[in-house]
Amino acid sequence: MISENKIYFYPIWLRIWHGINAMGILILIVTGINMQFSNPKFGLVNFELAVNLHNISGILVTINYLLFFFGNILTSNKRYYRLKRKGLFKRLQLQVDYYTSGMFKNQQPPFPLSEKRKFNPMQKVSYLTVMYLFVPGLVITGLALLFPETIIENVYSVSGIFLTAILHASLGFLVSIFLIIHLYVASIGKNPLNNFKSIINGYHDIHGH
């Protein structure tokens, strides 16, 4: 489905899924920071409200994650996430070189996106890490904290809840860092807003990166 160099890249189901994830994770980050650094004198959101919003968004993002996880097993969408190990480091190097110097010399991207290749190697690695390591880690620790009675009380005399909470907060922090970089890299397109428009209307400009 090509028209004027544009590919219909993001079908409606994907955009809805991405939208729910984006909203959910943003709420989780804001309410998470609010709880971690809560203060009786100052708070973006009231603590009780933050806890409730965090729980609701957490469950929503978990359901959304299950759609992603099983969707990627059952549909052909998984092909975009397949990573060939051979020469991976070299391919990553090429992409890093492009972002750090090539793009400033008006060079062509080393892995131009097409209907067959939706993600460049850097995207693949980061999306795989976030979606198959960080997010499931957050879902598991988050659900455990939602039902704290399920957590092992003491792990070698260290509180199990303490360990789970530290892991949850650390992974949450890493996802926030991913989000900042994800949003910034998204601005590297034909123009800074091009990719943001794509994820809303579904059409990707193949001259973008």
Binding site: S159, F162, S170
Partner: peptide, 25 residues
């Protein structure tokens, strides 16, 4: 501190973890 303090959301502020996360940010 670790064994006795069951995690209290908001009350647990680890100096190193906080500073390390600010550094990465």
């Amino acid at each position: 501190i670790i064994a006795n303090k069951s995690y209290v959301i908001g009350a647990y502020q680890n100096f190193w973890l906080n500073n390390f996360s600010i550094f990465i940010f």
